[in-house]
Nucleic acid binder design. Structure first.
Length: 310
DNA sequence: AATTTACACAACCGCGGTCCA
DNA sequence: GTGGACCGCGGTTGTGTAAAT
């Protein structure tokens, strides 16, 4: 009766993903597409439960992820959509291509909530905070003043005093976002800019037609998700120049996140290299009439997760 | 230089709906 | 029709990093 359990949870690894695990998962998904997540860990050789693999893929490894800070426009969309939909993050995320529900949820909790509160708006109801609530907040602020100053002033604390209108705060945020987004890399945008490329215009190929690069073997004994960036570094291709800030970025910051995107673009941009490399390693593949050899650039069709030729 | 503190984000947990045997 | 597994979602926690002391 019923299905097999997704995992027995015995001997399964938890916590941050290692570069090695990322590689295995990426290779597996690229080879087989997204199928039954329950089978993924076993087939991919991962000591993770399917759920964990799904989360890692959807929230971090998917090639169409935008990453980086939300733009001013995106942030305003999130606020508007939240006013309509509430905490339905996945619904909100569906209106923001390249953004995950987790990412939006995090951004909401860490940035937007504070911003709205500062503006005197209740982030739950999107209505002005009641007088009593505002008094409570004032009391809390008074208490904070009496308590010795915290060691670190938050980003929010560094901003100006609360504005009286949403628009003024948005304007303020715009300036910040301009600075941030100008430094960020958007692979989807870049892909769309390639000779007017549009995923709707290209034929799809079946997953079995995909030649997936065997990830370069590495001897690194990484032990945290931080090492994923090292993994990305290891995937450099000879002709490729990484963004100047790539090597200076640290593990968990937004720079690094945006670099994951550039990784993907370059990952796809380097298919010909990969194919050649792969055919060397796998003679069987070398003899196949690969569509990739004719069309070295590929991308994902966001909806179906089949693969598009670029 | 070491320690403390706050922040940001990745990952986990648990629940509910849906699907399947 | 029923029970149990799968999947997706939202809430929460854990961890790494930067800044302040």
């Amino acid at each position: 009766m019923g299905r097999q359990p997704c995992c027995d949870k015995v001997g399964l690894k938890k916590g941050p993903w290692t570069a090695e695990e990322d590689k295995k998962l990426i290779n597996f998904i690229l080879t087989n597409g997204q199928c039954c997540w329950r089978a993924v860990p076993k087939l991919a050789g991962l000591l993770r439960c399917g759920k964990s693999c799904r989360l890692r893929w959807t929230n971090y490894l998917r090639p169409d992820l935008k990453r980086g800070l939300l733009s001013e426009h995106e942030e305003q969309m999130v606020i508007d959509l939240h006013a309509q939909l509430g905490n339905r993050w996945s619904k909100i995320a569906s209106h923001l291509p390249g953004r995950t529900d987790n990412e939006i949820k995090n951004h909401w909790n860490t940035h937007i909530k504070k911003k709205l509160r500062k503006m005197g708006i209740d982030p739950l109801t999107h209505k002005p905070l009641s007088t009593t609530e505002q008094q409570q907040q004032q009391q809390q602020q008074e208490q904070k003043k009496q308590i010795p100053k915290p060691a670190v002033k938050s980003q929010v604390d560094k901003t100006k005093e609360p504005e009286t209108s949403i628009q003024s705060t948005i304007t303020e945020a715009k300036e910040e976002d301009k600075i941030m987004t100008s430094r960020l890399f958007d692979p989807m945008e870049m892909m769309n800019n390639i000779d007017g490329f549009c995923t709707d215009e290209v034929p799809l190929i079946e997953p079995h037609e995909i030649l997936v690069p065997s990830a370069p073997s590495t001897t690194s004994s990484s032990s945290s998700s931080c090492d994923s960036s090292k993994f990305l570094e290891e995937l450099q291709f000879p002709d490729f120049e990484w963004p100047s800030d790539y090597n200076t970025s640290s593990c968990n910051n937004s720079n690094n996140i945006s670099n994951n995107l550039s990784f993907w673009d370059d990952y796809f941009g380097g298919w010909d290299l990969i194919i050649n490399d792969d055919s060397d390693r796998n003679p069987a593949l070398g003899s196949l009439p690969s569509p990739l050899i004719q069309c070295p650039r590929m991308g994902f069709d966001q909806g179906s997760w089949t693969y598009d030729l670029l």
